[in-house]
């Protein structure tokens, strides 16, 4: 499955009410490290297809959601389970690192 686009409008439906866990990449166009993370997120969407919903949220256009979750640095990649943020990964990281954290959080 390809990665999704989350917004202030669809966040409650797509993320908070989701039956499957959701990985949200908080990003912005001007953020250089976000450009490094972006293709990794797209790969994770494919790798975890069926197990995890994966998408991006542009913090410039969706400031309310970013603020609600205290995002103060991007990229911040947050894993939501049952509507709650259970893991926040701040700053660009390797794909392996994201996988390690996702696997641990999904297993718990």
């Amino acid at each position: 499955m390809a990665d999704l686009t989350f917004t202030d409008q669809n966040f409650a439906d797509e993320v908070l009410q989701s039956q499957t866990p959701v990985l949200v990449d908080f990003w912005a166009a001007w953020c250089v490290p976000c450009r490094i993370v972006s293709p990794i997120i797209e790969e994770l969407a494919v790798d975890y297809s069926g197990k995890l919903k994966v998408g991006k949220l542009d913090v410039d256009a969706n400031g309310t959601t970013a603020q609600n979750y205290g995002i103060m640095s991007i990229p911040s990649v947050v894993l939501f389970k049952n509507g709650e943020p259970v893991k926040t990964m701040i700053g660009a990281q390797s794909k392996d690192n994201y996988k390690k954290e996702i696997d641990a959080a999904l297993a718990s």
Binding site: A28, P33, D60, A66, G70, I71, M72, S73, I74, G91
Partner: peptide, 17 residues
């Protein structure tokens, strides 16, 4: 608090302040 108000990159994070 790195990424939660502590930063080393103003061009990356200034907008949140």
């Amino acid at each position: 608090k790195i990424g939660r108000g502590v930063s080393s990159c103003a061009p990356c994070d200034a907008v949140f302040f």
